[in-house]
Simulated assay, not measured.
Amino acid sequence: MTALNKHVIGQDGALSWGTLGFAHPTLAGLELPYFDIHAPLPGPHLAIVAGMHPNEVDAMEAALRLKAHFAKKLLRGSVSILPVLNLPGLYSHAEFVCPVDGKNMNFLAPGDSQGSFSPVLVHQVLHEWAKDADVFIDLHGGDLREEVARFVMCQLTGNEAFDARTRELAHQFDADSIVEFAVGQTNNRGRATNELPWLGRHAVMAEGGANGVFDQVCIDFHFNGVANIGRLLGLTDDAPAGKTRRNQVVNNFAKVEAPISGRFYLDVAAGEEVAAGQRLGTLKDIFGDSAGELLAPYPGLVLMVVNHPIINQGEWLISLAPLPA
């Protein structure tokens, strides 16, 4: 049985597009938009996914622009693009999860062929659609209540040569920060960028955007980073985009959670450095009375903030990366 079913809608030179279906019965009826670009010369295969969280519009817009870029510039190899993975949540503006089963695909890698809709879809994308990819790129950034710094994530494995290549790929982005997850980290697992390297496959994840609205700076961040990777792989020969940001390397980040349900008044922004004990924001209860302050537990770089003032106890409010000593 063929695992993937492609319905080609159009073709223009090296570019073809249409809908992608899956033979797996759990995914019956799902048809994802796709783009394929093939050069006449053999070379590496680059796989690009966006829209795992369907309000992260800068990433999805960058994926569409990358389609046109590679259709024009590709000299060798191939590029495959899924511009919106969480199609069931697209028009309902679902935050974080797939409405079919209420699960967050971002933490389900490497997938499960025996699971519910979301883990099966992740499995099929990683192990069927992208199984031959030399590099897998997962683009994210800025759901409806989030402000996310422009940062990149990659997983180190302890294999020196493999990790050097992974770093090289991640550093093609001009980022506020590059999270090089250490070999022994366990609190940030389940993303494709964390799990594929343990299977010997290179993967990079990029974040950048805010509040589900277009931001040209963040669109360019995603676009330029992937275009630079294409050049590094030898797919194109265009000039690389330059770097102007700090590109601060960190090796993990942790959640700062809401201690109460109520109101939160942020004092910091994504991309900002904070000192240990610095106030991240103030808290008020549902009556508007003071409920204390939220303080930074260590010196860090703010990677993400929830910027909606109504919060739930235990909610992930801030991602804070410890700064090197």
Rank of each mutant, 00 (worst) to 15 (best):
residue 244 T to I: 14
residue 240 P to L: 14
residue 278 Q to H: 06
residue 244 T to G: 03
residue 264 F to G: 03
residue 265 Y to P: 02
residue 262 G to T: 08
residue 286 I to N: 11
residue 287 F to H: 14
residue 262 G to Q: 07
residue 253 F to A: 04
residue 235 L to W: 03
residue 279 R to K: 13
residue 282 T to I: 11
residue 269 A to I: 08
residue 264 F to W: 15
residue 236 T to Y: 00
residue 237 D to L: 11
residue 240 P to I: 12
residue 239 A to I: 07
residue 249 V to C: 02
residue 285 D to R: 11
residue 259 P to D: 06
residue 258 A to T: 12
residue 248 Q to D: 06
residue 267 D to Q: 15
residue 235 L to A: 07
residue 248 Q to R: 14
residue 283 L to C: 05
residue 286 I to A: 14
residue 275 A to N: 12
residue 234 G to M: 10
residue 240 P to M: 09
residue 240 P to D: 05
residue 248 Q to L: 15
residue 264 F to M: 11
residue 271 G to P: 00
residue 273 E to P: 00
residue 245 R to L: 15
residue 250 V to W: 02
residue 272 E to F: 00
residue 247 N to V: 01
residue 270 A to D: 02
residue 262 G to Y: 13
residue 246 R to P: 04
residue 266 L to V: 01
residue 275 A to V: 04
residue 265 Y to K: 08
residue 249 V to I: 13
residue 262 G to N: 09
residue 282 T to Y: 10
residue 245 R to G: 03
residue 250 V to A: 03
residue 286 I to M: 15
residue 288 G to M: 10
residue 281 G to E: 00
residue 275 A to S: 14
residue 282 T to Q: 09
residue 241 A to R: 07
residue 272 E to Q: 15
residue 278 Q to F: 06
residue 234 G to P: 08
residue 233 L to Q: 03
residue 250 V to C: 12
residue 288 G to T: 14
residue 234 G to A: 08
residue 249 V to D: 04
residue 276 A to Y: 01
residue 265 Y to L: 10
residue 237 D to C: 07
residue 268 V to G: 01
residue 279 R to D: 09
residue 251 N to A: 04
residue 234 G to Y: 12
residue 262 G to E: 06
residue 285 D to M: 11
residue 257 E to K: 13
residue 269 A to D: 08
residue 240 P to F: 07
residue 257 E to Y: 05
residue 277 G to V: 06
residue 270 A to M: 02
residue 253 F to P: 01
residue 282 T to W: 12
residue 236 T to M: 05
residue 244 T to A: 13
residue 259 P to Q: 10
residue 284 K to W: 05
residue 271 G to F: 01
residue 269 A to G: 10
residue 239 A to C: 09
residue 282 T to K: 09
